[in-house]
Design a protein around this nucleic acid. Structure first.
Length: 872
RNA sequence: GGGCCCGUGGUCUAGGGGUUAUGACGCCGCCCUCACGAGGCGGAGGUCGAGGGUUCGAGUCCCUCCGGGCCCA
C-alpha cells in the first residue's frame, strides 16, 4: 500500500536524480517530424527568477506535449553572457575599474563570474523539471559561439548591411558608452522651463527651453507654420545669445504652439526631435558635447564645464544680460540609461550601424503566426516609429569583438575574412597586408558589439549555421519570449534572419506576459513583493509552481498567487489519493475481456474521459494551458472522484468478480490516461503515479515522458451511455442531497428507492451507492403533471419574430396551467399578440415539467430527467 | 502624450451577441463515509468599472469617460 500523503519534495528530488538527460536529446536524423524551439538564452545573473519560470514553463508544456505527440523536439538552452551588468558586478567584486587591468584579464574575470552564475541557474531549471536538451547548450561568451556572431557581422558587412557612420547616438556619460534607443528608459522628473530672449529690439524672440546649456549648439529656431503670432518671423535671422552667430527662423509642423512661447530652438542635439529636425531641414552641425559629458571649445567660454555647470553659468550670464525673462517649474520625462539611470545625452560619433529595412521586416513579421495575435501590432508600431538605424558598436570590454582593423598608413577599414574567425582585433593581427596600400601596420577596433548581435542569431546557431546549416529545418518551429523584448530580441532576430539567410526565423512566436507580485504590481525590490522560485519549491514543490504558471492566459501578465499554489498542491494530494484507491483494487492489468462487462456508469465515465482527451488536445494545440489543465482537474475531481468513484465503490468492495472486473478496467484506463494528460504540466507527479500504477499491476514501464499523448478512442465515446450515466449521477446525487437535508449520514440505509425515467438504466450501481433496494418503474404512478415553466429559446424566436418576441413571451407567460399543459401535449398553440394571431410550436420552448405525487412516508425527488420516489 | 492589454460576488478568474454568469480561494451550516478531513454535501454572496449607443436581445459589439498594467515617446 502506498503512503497516504503525497510528498512532493521527496518525489521531485528523486526524479531529478533518476531522470536521464538523454531522454530529451534531439536527433537530427530522426524520421519523426522535427519541432525546434528557439529558447531564450537568459542573462546569467545567477538567479532564475519567477518571470523566467513562467516563460520556461510555457516552453516545457509545449516541448513535452509535442514530444508525446510524436515530434522530435529540440529544446536547447543558451546563455546570453555579454554585457554591462556583468562588467559592473565584476568591477564591484574585485574592487577594480575595467581600465585598471588588461582587457584580456578583465574578460577572464567576467567569464569566471558568469560560469558560476550559469551553474546556479541551471540547478533551479533542473529542479523545475524542464525537459531541456543540455547537449544543445550554447554560451555566447565562448569562441565557438562568438565566432558565429563575428561571421554574421562579416557577412552583413559584405552585403552592405553594416556600415560605419558619423551619426548622432545616445550616449551614457556614466557608462561611457553608446546605448541603443531600446536601452533608454524614461523617468518623470521636475525641471525648470526657462524663457530666454534671443536677438535684440524688433528682431528678437522669446524661446522656452529646459536645456539652456545647449544654446551654444543652437542651429535654428522653429515656429509652427500656422501660428499667427509668429508667421511674420519665418525666414528672419536672430542672433544666438552667448555666441556670435545668427540662426534662421524656420517653420515646422512638429512645433507645439501650446508649449512655452510656441517658439523652440533646435540644437544639435538635445533630444531625438532635434535629430529629426536637423535631418529634415538639413541644418548645420554644432556638436558642443564631448563623451565625458563636458562642453567643448565650440561652446566658447563654457568649454570644460559639465552640462549642469554650464546650465548654471549660462543662466547666470543671461540673467545679467536681462535675457532670462522668467522660469517656471514643469514636469518632464528625462531619458536615462536603463542600467545606471543617468540622464543620457545625444552626441555625434563614429559608430557601427546595421541598416534597418522597415518594409522587409514588417512583411516578414506578418508571415509569422503571433500568439496572441495582437502582439504583432507591438512590433509593427515599434518598427514604424523607428527613426534611425541600429547602433551596434559599444565601448565596452565583455562582448563580442568587432572583427575589424584600421590600416595605420592609409586608414582603410579591413574586415576579417571568415576563416580568420574567431578573432580579437585588440590582440590579433590581420593575416594579410592592407589590400589598399600593402601596409602591415594596423590598429585593432576596440569597440565591441551590442549583446543583441549575439542573441539575434539564436535560431541560426541552433540549426547549425553557418557550418552545417540545416536549411530544411528552417524556419524553426517556435520562438517563445516575453512581450517586454518584442522590440529588441524578436525584432533583431527577424532582421538578422532576413539579412543572413533571407527567411523568417520561426513559423510561430508565442509571447508570455510578465509576472506581477501578489498585489498585482510589477515585482520589485522596493515594493518588497518578490517571490523566488526556490521559496515555492521548498514549500509546495515544482509541480505546484508549474500548475500556477499554467493558470494564466498566454500573453497576459500573471500575478503570482500563493492561493493558486495551494490549490494546485491540493489537487496533487487528491490525485495521489485516487491512485491509492486505484491500487487498493487493482492487482493486475485488466484485460480487454473485462471491457465486455462494462456497465452504464463505466461506459459513461469512459466516454467522458475520451471527450476530455479531445478537449485537452485542442487546448494544447492552441496554447490554452489554463483551459487544458482546468479541464483535467475538474474531470478528475468532480466527475471521476466525486461521482464515478462514489457510484462504483460499493461494487468494488462488495461486488462479485464479474462486477469488479469492468470497474477495474475503468480504474486502470482512467489513471493511465490522466497521468499522461498531466505529464506536460506536472512531470514529477505524473511520473510517480505512472510508475506506481504499473508497479501495482506488476508491469515494468519506461518513463511517462517517453509515452504518447492520449488519443481519444472513438469506440468509447457513447452518447447513450453518457445519458444513462448522467441519469445515474443525478439520481444518486439527488438522493444523497435528500439524506443530507434530513440529517442522515450519506451511507444510511433506505427502505426502497423507485425510479421513473424515460430511458432504461442499470440500477445495480445506484443500489450500491444509495444503500437501498432500487426499483425501476415502468409507469409513473398517479401523478399530477404541471408545466412549471416554458422557457423561450430566444436564439430561435429572436430571428423569427424580431421585435415581437417580447410580446409573445409575455402572452405565453400569461397562459393558464391548463393551456400550458395543452400546448405542451399538442405541441402547438395559437395565441393573440397585439391583435395578430401567431402559431407557436412547443419545441421553441424549453419545457420544465413538475410531477407531483401524494402519499405518506415517501419523498418525491425530481432530477432533470427522472422522478425518484424514496421510502425512508 | 501615444500604442497594446485589462476592469466580472470579499479576492482571483471563465465566458467575445441568446435571458438562471463559470470556477477557485475565503465565509456560513451540516456529515468523524471503509482513497483523500489538505475530504464530502449544501448555502449565502454579483445592478459583469461608469455613462451613452447598436440590437427583438449586450459581461459579450460601438462610442465617451474613469481606474489599473505593460511598452514606448
Amino acid at each position: 500500500m502506498i503512503e497516504k500523503e503525497y510528498k512532493a519534495q521527496e518525489v521531485e528530488e528523486k526524479w531529478v536524480k533518476l531522470w536521464k538527460d538523454d531522454m530529451y536529446y534531439f536527433d537530427w536524423n530522426s524520421k519523426k517530424p522535427h519541432y525546434i524551439i528557439d529558447t531564450p538564452p537568459p542573462y546569467p545573473t545567477g538567479s532564475f527568477h519567477i518571470g523566467n519560470t513562467l516563460n520556461w514553463c510555457y516552453i516545457d508544456f509545449i516541448a513535452r506535449y509535442k514530444r508525446m505527440k510524436g515530434y522530435e523536439v529540440m529544446f536547447p538552452q543558451g546563455w546570453d553572457c555579454h554585457g554591462l551588468p556583468t562588467e559592473v558586478k565584476v568591477e564591484e567584486i574585485h574592487g577594480i575599474s575595467k581600465n585598471d587591468i588588461p582587457r584580456e584579464e578583465f574578460r577572464r574575470l567576467c567569464v569566471e563570474f558568469t560560469k558560476g552564475n550559469i551553474e546556479r541557474m541551471k540547478q533551479t531549471m533542473k529542479r523545475l523539471g524542464f525537459s531541456i536538451d543540455w547537449s544543445k547548450e550554447y554560451i555566447t561568451m565562448y569562441p565557438e559561439y562568438y565566432r558565429k556572431t563575428q561571421i554574421s557581422f562579416v557577412r552583413m558587412f559584405n552585403k552592405g548591411l553594416i556600415y560605419k557612420g558619423y551619426h548622432p547616438v545616445v550616449f551614457c556619460p556614466r557608462c561611457q558608452t553608446t546605448i541603443a534607443l531600446a536601452e533608454i528608459e524614461y523617468k518623470k522628473g521636475k525641471t525648470k522651463l526657462n524663457y530666454i530672449r534671443f536677438g535684440d529690439g524688433d528682431n528678437s524672440v522669446i524661446i522656452a527651453t529646459t536645456r539652456p546649456e545647449l544654446i551654444p549648439a543652437c542651429v535654428a529656431i522653429a515656429v509652427h507654420p500656422e501660428d499667427e503670432r509668429y508667421k511674420h518671423l519665418i525666414g528672419k535671422k536672430v542672433k544666438v545669445p552667448t555666441t556670435d552667430y545668427e540662426v534662421e527662423i524656420i517653420a515646422d509642423e512638429d512645433v507645439d504652439p501650446e508649449f512655452g512661447t510656441g517658439i523652440v530652438m533646435i540644437c544639435t542635439f538635445g533630444d531625438k526631435q532635434d535629430v529629426k529636425w536637423w535631418k529634415k531641414h538639413n541644418l548645420q552641425l554644432r556638436a558642443i558635447l564631448n563623451k565625458d559629458g563636458r562642453l567643448n571649445e565650440k561652446a566658447g567660454k563654457y568649454a570644460g564645464l559639465t552640462t549642469l555647470e554650464a546650465r548654471e553659468a549660462i543662466l547666470r550670464d543671461l540673467a545679467e544680460e536681462g535675457r532670462l525673462i522668467k522660469q517656471e517649474e514643469i514636469e518632464q520625462n528625462v531619458g536615462v540609461c536603463w542600467r545606471c539611470k543617468t540622464p543620457v545625452e545625444i552626441i555625434v560619433e563614429d559608430q557601427w550601424f546595421v541598416k534597418v529595412e522597415k518594409d522587409k521586416i514588417l512583411k516578414a513579421a506578418r508571415q509569422i503566426k503571433w500568439v496572441p495575435e495582437h502582439m504583432l501590432s507591438r512590433l509593427e508600431s515599434w518598427v514604424e516609429g523607428m527613426e534611425w538605424d541600429w547602433v551596434i558598436s559599444r565601448q565596452r570590454i565583455f562582448a563580442t569583438p568587432i572583427p575589424v582593423w584600421y590600416c595605420k598608413r592609409c586608414g582603410a577599414i579591413v574586415v576579417a575574412k571568415e576563416e580568420w574567425l574567431p578573432v580579437d582585433p585588440t590582440k590579433d593581427k590581420p593575416k594579410e597586408p592592407c589590400p589598399k596600400c600593402g601596409s602591415t601596420e594596423f590598429e585593432g577596433e576596440t569597440d565591441v558589439l551590442d549583446t543583441w548581435m549575439d542573441s539575434s542569431i539564436t535560431p541560426l546557431a541552433i540549426t547549425g549555421w553557418p557550418d552545417e546549416w540545416r536549411k530544411e529545418d528552417y524556419p524553426t518551429s517556435l520562438r517563445p519570449q516575453g512581450h517586454d523584448i518584442i522590440r529588441t530580441w524578436a525584432f533583431y532576430t527577424i532582421l538578422r534572419s532576413l539579412a543572413l539567410v533571407g527567411d523568417i526565423p520561426w513559423k510561430e512566436i508565442v509571447i508570455n506576459g510578465m509576472v506581477l507580485g501578489e498585489d498585482g504590481r510589477k515585482m520589485s525590490k522596493s515594493l518588497g513583493n518578490i517571490v523566488e522560485p526556490h521559496e515555492v519549491i521548498e514549500k509546495y514543490g515544482a509541480d505546484a509552481l508549474r500548475q500556477w504558471a499554467a493558470s494564466g492566459v498566454v500573453g497576459d501578465d500573471v500575478a503570482f498567487s500563493w492561493k493558486e499554489i495551494v490549490a494546485a498542491s491540493r489537487f496533487q494530494q487528491k490525485f495521489w489519493s485516487i491512485l491509492r484507491f486505484t491500487l487498493l483494487h487493482l492487482k493486475e492489468k485488466p484485460s480487454d475481456e473485462d471491457a465486455k462487462l462494462l456497465r452504464d456508469a463505466d461506459r459513461w465515465i469512459l466516454s467522458k474521459l475520451m471527450k476530455l482527451v479531445k478537449e485537452v488536445d485542442e487546448h494544447m494545440e492552441n496554447y490554452r494551458f489554463a483551459e487544458a489543465l482546468k479541464a483535467i482537474r475538474s474531470f478528475t475531481w468532480y466527475e471521476y472522484a466525486d461521482n464515478y468513484l462514489e457510484i462504483v465503490k460499493n461494487r468494488l468492495y462488495a461486488g462479485s468478480e464479474d462486477e469488479k472486473k469492468p470497474a477495474r478496467f475503468v480504474l486502470y484506463t482512467v489513471m493511465n490516461v490522466l497521468t499522461r494528460l498531466l505529464a506536460p504540466f506536472t512531470p514529477f507527479l505524473a511520473e510517480e503515479c505512472w510508475q506506481r500504477l504499473h508497479e501495482g499491476i506488476g508491469e515494468k514501464v519506461e518513463s511517462v515522458h517517453l509515452q504518447s499523448y492520449p488519443e481519444a478512442d472513438e469506440r468509447l465515446i457513447d452518447e447513450e451511455a453518457e445519458k444513462r450515466g448522467e441519469l445515474i449521477k443525478e439520481i444518486v446525487s439527488v438522493v444523497r442531497r435528500m439524506k443530507h437535508d434530513k440529517g442522515l449520514p450519506l451511507n444510511a440505509p433506505l427502505k426502497k428507492v423507485m425510479i421513473f425515467a424515460p430511458i432504461e438504466i442499470d440500477t445495480r450501481d445506484i443500489a450500491g451507492a444509495l444503500n437501498a433496494e432500487v426499483e425501476l418503474l415502468k409507469e409513473m404512478p398517479t401523478i399530477e403533471v404541471r408545466v412549471k415553466a416554458l422557457k423561450p429559446k430566444f436564439n430561435i424566436l429572436g430571428p423569427m419574430f424580431k421585435d415581437k418576441v417580447k410580446a409573445i413571451v409575455n402572452a405565453v407567460s400569461k397562459l393558464s396551467n391548463e393551456e400550458k399543459l395543452k400546448f405542451v401535449e399538442s405541441g402547438k398553440i395559437e395565441i393573440d399578440v397585439d391583435g395578430e394571431k401567431i402559431e407557436l410550436k412547443s419545441e421553441w420552448f424549453d419545457v420544465e415539467v413538475e410531477k407531483v405525487l401524494g402519499g405518506e412516508g415517501v419523498e418525491v425527488l425530481e432530477t432533470e430527467n427522472a422522478v425518484v420516489i424514496v421510502e425512508i
